[in-house]
Each structure stands twice: as C-alpha cells, then as structure tokens.
C-alpha cells in the first residue's frame, strides 16, 4: 500500500483478542477449548495531518481498546499501525521511545489521571525531562508557552497551581498541555469531555479543534457522544462489537446513515427541542459478546432489516461513495 499524501496514521486490519480466563474446574473439563473476546477485530482507518477522526460506539465496542493499541498501551494481536509511513508495532528501544513521544493520549478522567503532588508546571515539564529535552531554562519557556496555548492564561498564575486548585475543565487543559509539550504529530483523545459540565465542554472542543488544525495533528477522538463529535470531527467511524461498520464525513453520516446500526445509534440521541418530534430508535436488546461468534454479520441478531445472507456471510467494508464505506449487505 502506498503512503498517501498527508496521512499521519494508518491502521490496517488491527486486531486485539483477549484470552478469557476460566475457572480451575472448567479448565479441567474442557482443556483444549480456548475462548477469546475479540475486542478489536479487523479495524482499518487512516488520519491525515490536521484532521480529526471520531471513533464512536457503545461500551464494549472496542473503541477505547483501539486507542490504547495505537499508543502501544496494549499489544496488538495482529495488524499494522503505520505512523508517518513506518510500521510502528515492531519498534523497539530508542525508536519506540521516539514513536511514543510523537503519539500522545489524553484520558477521560481528569480527576484521577494527574499526580496531585505535582504543580501544573512540574506536570507539564516532566515529559521533557523524561525525554531529556532542553535545559531548565528552555524547558520553562516551553512549559509556559504550552500552558498558554491550551488556554491556561496567564501561565505565570497557573504554573504554581496543584490539580485540586483547578476545575475539571482546567485539569483537562492541563492534560492536553502535558501531551502537547512533546510536540506530537498524533493525539488520541478518549472521551476527554464526558466528565465536564456542559458550559465548559464547548471550550475544550474548540481547543482540540484549533490545536489539531494549527499544529497539523492527526487526532483520534474516541467518544460515545455523537452530538459532541458533530462539532469536532471531520469524519466519523462507527464501531460495533470490535468492527467498524461505517466510516465517512461527519455530516453525511449523521444526515444519511447507511448502516442499520448507525441509524439506530443516531436516532437514539435525545434532542434538546420539545418540538423535535424525534422518532425513537427501534432496535431491541444490547450488544452481546456471544454475537461475536456469529458466522455472518454481528449486528444481525438486533438488525431490523436483516436477510438470509446476513446469517451466513460477514459483510466486508465496501466503498459506496467517495470516502464513504459501509459493512452491510443491505447498504
């Protein structure tokens, strides 16, 4: 596969299977049979510089696992993750360290992911020290610049604050500052706004958006909240039980979803307008790990439009329009 122009991150057929541990007695009776949870099962996408891709799905869809695989917090079972044209999964030693510096992650919970004994400036400076970058003076300058860049202005005020002195929104900005200080090319953001109040959420969305564009980052934004994604992401990928079922430009997916699961997910989002007359989603049940063992389409047990073929063959992703792919026999 050729390395397309501007693509920073390219994920191909990524898989992560977790072995299910069984109890002692059952391991005696069924020795040969091993069970896996296919948390991520053949995920492919690419992100260009300056672009935000949204990875949407319900709990258990594998979206967070995908994020962790990209930053090498988990080891992939198979597949490739090309970063700036180079395969990253088999990197070791110094090369792996360089890779990690350029691919940063922000986590969901700003209350538990920060060291409560570090001041803001120490927290942001630490990565620079770990990577041995600069001298104390240049580091300080860089820390101040990064704090201001993430909206913690004036930096001279915030640099001495401890996490408990900051609000949730400011803490999340601090987390972004720590990730940015290393000048990464790729940012993985796992539900960074879900714990914030509504009035602060918009500010953080705009920050991630402008940083992505200005610094030319490739941003993967993981969330279950499609309405937030609408304001932030250029494209959206929708995951179901470890697979991407649909991917395409944000407004096109939201206005005209082609996969029945995308349709269900989008129609389930409540609308803050008493006159909207929204039709409720009509799919039954919940995703079940048992459905992973299905030979055909994993969504078939809940699908309102499934046909005979869906039971037999697993639909592969197919391009229906330029830049728009769907994995459904009926699309």
């Amino acid at each position: 596969m050729t390395f397309s122009q501007g693509v920073v991150l390219e994920v191909r057929d990524l898989k992560k299977y977790f072995l299910v541990r069984r109890g002692f007695f059952r391991s005696l009776t069924r020795r040969d049979e091993q069970q896996y949870v296919m948390a991520v099962d053949g995920v492919s996408f690419s992100i260009r510089a300056g672009e935000t891709l949204g990875l949407a799905g319900e709990s258990g869809s594998g979206k967070t696992t995908t994020g962790k695989l990209i930053v090498h917090l988990l080891e992939a079972t198979s597949g490739t993750i090309k970063f700036q044209g180079r395969e990253s999964l088999r990197l070791k030693g110094g090369e792996l360290k360089r890779f990690r510096r350029q691919v940063q992650m922000i986590f969901q919970d700003p209350y538990t992911s920060q060291n409560s004994r570090f001041t803001a400036s120490k927290w942001v400076e630490e990565p620079l020290i770990i990577y041995g970058l600069g001298d104390p003076q240049s580091r300080k300058r860089q820390v101040m610049e990064t704090l201001e860049r993430t909206g913690l202005k004036p930096a001279s005020h915030y640099m001495h604050q401890f996490p408990h002195q900051l609000s949730g929104g400011q803490r999340q900005r601090l987390a972004i500052a720590r990730a940015l200080v290393l000048q990464p090319r790729c940012l993985v953001a796992d539900e960074p706004t879900s714990m914030l109040d509504v009035s602060l959420r918009a500010g953080l969305i705009k920050l991630i958006q402008s940083l992505t564009v200005e610094l030319g980052l490739a941003t993967l934004y993981i969330s279950h909240d499609l309405s937030v994604m609408r304001y932030l992401c250029n494209r959206i990928a929708i995951m179901y039980l470890g697979r991407i079922v649909e991917i395409g430009p944000t407004e096109e997916i939201l206005k005209n979803p082609l996969h029945p699961y995308s349709r269900a997910l989008i129609s389930a989002v409540p609308i803050p307008n008493p006159y909207s007359g929204r039709q409720r989603t009509q799919i039954p049940g919940e995703p079940s790990l048992r459905d992973q063992a299905i030979r055909g389409c994993r969504f078939q047990p809940r699908c309102p439009v499934s046909e005979a073929r869906c039971l037999e063959d697993q639909p592969e992703m197919a391009e229906v329009e330029e830049g728009r792919m769907v994995a459904c026999w009926r699309a």
């Binding site: 509504v198 609408r230 307008n273």
Partner: peptide, 18 residues
C-alpha cells in the same frame, strides 16, 4: 446553557462556552 448544548438537530450551530 442552551447555546452550549450540542445537538444533532438542524444545522451545526456554533457552540458557546460560558
């Protein structure tokens, strides 16, 4: 609050933050 709340309805408005 109303202006800060994201929605899937209608055209994408600009979100404000308080």
């Amino acid at each position: 609050l109303l202006m800060a709340f994201p929605t899937l309805e209608g055209e994408a408005k600009r979100l404000i933050s308080i």
